[in-house]
Nucleic acid binder design. Structure first.
Lengths: 175, 175
DNA sequence: GAAGGTAAACCGTCCGGACGGTACAGTCAA
DNA sequence: TTGACTGTACCGTCCGGACGGTTTACCTTC
């Protein structure tokens, strides 16, 4: 049994869930509070404003992003495969970073801070991918492929069936 | 000199512009009307509700999408190159379809109708790409690459410098 | 170990402002 | 005269945020 996460985590989870399932338009303090099973007052105790809630998500992107890169670096399957695998959505996809990224993407264009956080995320991946494929242009290519898979995920598609084929195609390029 | 477009077109343009520059949160009837240099009453004369405005954008995605595919089919540079070129954003990018797509992407996850319109768009491209590269999996690969470029564009990046390199990489795959 | 204190965690209500939409009277070019 | 608007005034609803409680957990001090 997973212990019930702290209220603060639950609130952030709820924020993400609503973003992914219903989009920015559905984000209200009350909706988030209800989903997190906390009162509106309780929510505002942890996050003093809607803006603070957003900042909470950005921070989470930052923290999870760092640990995700560390995991990737040590992944036995290899950095590229790890990258693509974490970019696809399948029916049972509930990896923390994947959901957080998906949620953050729903906010692209609404808040400059989110855009910047996502750009930082892609920059970090680009650096790591460059290390592992040798060439910065190829690294961009792989990076963009992963981004494309994320965009498909945003559209609600299950992209897991493409994973192995894509890896095989990249192998043909010597990656 | 470009003649001033009709009010209805200007309203839709304004809707797109605000979406691209400031995101969904900035979309209000008054903001769109002001940008289109039309009164709020005038806006509601053409689009009876905010929902109708959204539908107007979806219709535009549909119409432009059809003509875009036709143009692609006849493009001397080839379908794949045309596809990738229309996926990148450069400083002077003002192609109608590109801006419309970028605007629509800002609405992904908020309205099912938008998601469906975008999925239809990617499906149509997939069919055309399959015709031209021979293999549906490779077509998916090219399609996803273009989507990735669009995601970068959403983040405000200029992706035009990647175009030639990406085309060269795809050429190595026999595309 | 009971009583008292305190601070963090949380609840429920209320208010003001913003926004979508309505209504309508007037303007003006074709 | 009709269609394409402008401008203003207005209504109802929703939402962010403030605020004043209340409960719980954990000390102290007698």
């Amino acid at each position: 049994m997973m212990p019930k996460p702290s209220a603060k985590e639950r609130i952030l989870d709820a924020y993400q869930d609503i973003l992914i399932e219903h989009g920015v338009g559905a984000i209200t303090l009350e909706a988030v509070a209800a989903r997190a099973e906390v009162s509106k007052g309780g929510l505002l105790y942890h996050f003093g404003s809607k803006e603070a809630l957003l900042q909470g998500l950005i921070d989470r992107v930052g923290h999870l992003g760092v640990t995700d890169l560390e995991t990737a670096r040590a992944a036995p399957e290899g950095v590229v495969r790890y990258y693509l695998r974490s970019s696809v959505t399948d029916v049972t996809q509930d990896k923390a970073m994947h959901r957080t990224t998906l949620a953050a993407m729903r906010l692209i264009g609404n808040e400059d801070a989110v855009d910047e956080a996502m750009r930082a995320y892609t920059r970090n991946w680009h650096a790591l991918l460059t290390e592992h494929v040798g060439d910065p242009v190829l690294a961009d290519f792989v990076g963009v492929t992963g981004d494309g898979l994320y965009l498909r995920a945003m559209l609600g598609e299950d992209t897991s069936h493409l994973l192995d084929d894509f890896i095989e195609i990249l192998a043909r390029l010597g990656i």
